[in-house]
Simulated assay, not measured.
Amino acid sequence: MTLSHADVRRILEILDTAENLESLDVTVGEFELHARKPGAAGSMRQPAAQPEVIRAIEPATPAVHVPVAAVDAPLAEVPPGLIAVRAPMVGTFYLRPSPDQPAFVEPGSVVQAGDTVCLVEVMKMFNSVQAHAAGTIERILISDGKPVQHDQIVMLIKPAKEG
């Protein structure tokens, strides 16, 4: 048995939404998933010795100036008259499709419903996040490359006036 991407996403959603669960270890065959909520008490168990060396590969992200009014502090409520774009899962927030590409959006960008506005990466799988309404990007609340939580507000859209 193997875990699909959807299985991993569901496991991470369970951890994210469970109030009394701080960490989770899942082993299916040779696949191991060790997840812990940010700020969880205690330490993760140390994995058994591996027969081969495993290296973490971090994407090289050159410093590119993206005019973002980022605060990296979760916004609890959506300001009146604005529409929230939320992270669909726990992961890493990216404003660009790749390090050498321009940002999907920036404050002031006009978007249509269904336009991709950012990516959330989970275990090297990149998930597109779409605008749910047409309008103008009012604020981006997360810096590129920063972690996000499930359902966290990542940007705000001022809806287009109909008529």
Rank of each mutant, 00 (worst) to 15 (best):
P38N: 04
K124P: 00
L15P: 05
Q112K: 11
A69R: 07
I83N: 03
Q112R: 11
A131W: 01
V85F: 04
I14H: 03
F126V: 14
R55M: 13
E13I: 14
G145K: 02
K37W: 09
K146L: 12
L24W: 05
V28F: 03
N20G: 06
I57E: 03
L33I: 15
G91D: 03
G135I: 14
Y94V: 01
G29R: 00
A134F: 08
A49K: 11
P102K: 00
E121M: 12
T116V: 15
R55I: 15
D151S: 13
V122A: 12
I11D: 02
S98G: 07
A103W: 06
R86E: 12
I137V: 15
P74Q: 10
E32G: 08
G42T: 03
E77T: 15
P102Y: 06
Q101S: 10
V90Y: 04
T17R: 07
A35W: 06
P80G: 13
D72N: 14
R96Y: 08
G42Y: 05
I14D: 02
R86V: 15
E52Q: 10
P51I: 01
E77V: 15
H65P: 03
G91M: 08
K124C: 10
P107M: 02
K124S: 09
N20Y: 01
H132W: 05
L95E: 03
F126T: 11
A131I: 11
S109L: 07
P80I: 14
G108L: 12
N127S: 11
P67D: 12
T92V: 15
A60D: 06
A131N: 00
E32K: 03
V90N: 03
P80Q: 13
A35I: 14
N20D: 13
P62E: 07
I140G: 01
R96F: 13
H34F: 12
E121L: 12
T116C: 11
D144Q: 01
A48Y: 00
A60H: 08
T92D: 02
E13R: 14
Q149R: 10
E121K: 08
M44T: 13
L82K: 08
H132K: 10
P59W: 10
T92F: 07
A76D: 11
P79C: 04
Q46H: 07
R55V: 15
V154N: 01
F104T: 01
A131G: 02
E121R: 07
D72S: 05
G91R: 06
V117K: 00
A41G: 05
Q152N: 06
E19P: 00
D151F: 09
M89H: 11
G114E: 05
